[in-house]
Design a protein around this nucleic acid. Structure first.
Lengths: 205, 205
DNA sequence: CACTCCCCTATGCTAATGAATAAGGGATCA
DNA sequence: TGATCCCTTATTCATTAGCATAGGGGAGTG
């Protein structure tokens, strides 16, 4: 790549913008434009784009999945759009990739990794942490779900009530609740339904 | 196919057995063996099998998914095993097919359709109602989910609470509950989590 | 042995879900 | 103009889910 890549970085956290922009701008010699919400991002893309790469925070004003992501992808076509996430739960990642995002970047990746991931996407590849991409069961094990937690998750995915799962596993209902709470924490789920969906996305069931 | 196909029909409802056996036996000239539970089915398969096709009710004594289904498939290999369902919710169908079942037959299919489906499977094909097989969105529309119900289902699949969905859709929480109840009935789901999984399986989200 | 991790249980509480019933407004169609 | 369907809201109620805190027992490891 001979030309200086032009990037658009959209994130409502100023600290994140500054950090990432410094990293990609100063250390990787890229031309980084910044903005703080989805509306501005779309304006930048249509008026000054397409950019070689658009990085979108997935929690920022105006950002919706998949609508505004798709709008950005369409506006920036054929150049790639990637998601910059704090902690993107796997289902968000899946939906973003399904919608056509070319990568999932995490804000707490090692700086070198982040730069390399951006270069990868600029080169036309995809990038997503292995745990995100089309869940092989290794991802699940890496997530350290204990056998009992798996049992409970399976029950949840069948739409069973805690009481029912407790009967099946021959334990008390409180125990099921405990496992559910811990596995939800591990999966980044906000409740049983979310946990079930994430488990399904990771092919844990 | 020159030889008379040998079938094993396992269902704990005598009426169903009689009906289906008469249909396949008398009208389609097949040699149908009957039994009433999973234990007997496995015994028949190992002692007198393999059959050209094994038909298993998915709600009968001893039947478990995926364990005993897999046992039957293994015992009857390489000949096919199919599920005979009353009203198999899509997630059951998916899991059965994933486990290696070669078809999903419904007890309330038109008799000709049932016979044809059996012949199809005997010929080495697969059979499942279109609504079951890897959900194209047509299946969803066929299931008549109204736009609002789809909105609610999407919210559920994101792990959102009713209150949250209500805010997003700008309606009252009771309205969300109503939509949830009706869509759950349509999908055959027992609760929100189950509905979310079924919706996911049908690619409605 | 002390430490950690997994598994299980108990108590107590608040919030969310689910179900039932009743009913009004708007759109479409015969 | 009924009939039907979708969307909406209200009210009430029982059940479930979810959270926090506190603890015991077992298995494995430095």
């Amino acid at each position: 790549m001979t030309r200086t890549p032009r990037l658009l970085l959209a994130d409502d956290h100023e600290l994140v913008r500054a950090t990432v922009a410094a990293l990609l701008g100063a250390k990787a010699s890229m031309d980084v434009t910044e903005c703080a919400d989805m509306h501005a991002a779309l304006r930048f893309i249509t008026e000054e784009g397409p950019y070689d790469l658009v990085l979108l925070d997935f929690t920022m004003p105006g950002m919706t999945l998949p609508d505004s992501l798709e709008a950005a992808i369409k506006a920036n076509a054929p150049h790639p759009v990637a998601i910059l996430s704090g902690t993107a739960p796997p289902d968000i990642a899946r939906r973003a990739m399904n919608a056509g995002a070319r990568g999932i970047l995490s804000k707490d990746m090692a700086p070198e990794t982040l730069v390399n991931a951006v270069r990868l996407i600029l080169a036309g590849e995809q990038y997503a942490p292995p745990a995100y991409l089309n869940g092989d069961r290794e991802a699940g094990r890496a997530m350290q779900l204990t056998p009992r937690e798996m049992d409970v998750l399976r029950g949840i995915c069948d739409g069973k009530a805690n009481k029912e799962i407790a009967r099946d596993l021959d334990v008390q209902e409180v125990t099921v609740k405990l496992h559910l709470k811990t596995l939800s924490r591990k999966l980044g789920a906000r409740n049983r339904t979310h946990a079930a969906m994430i488990g399904r996305d990771l092919n844990l069931v």
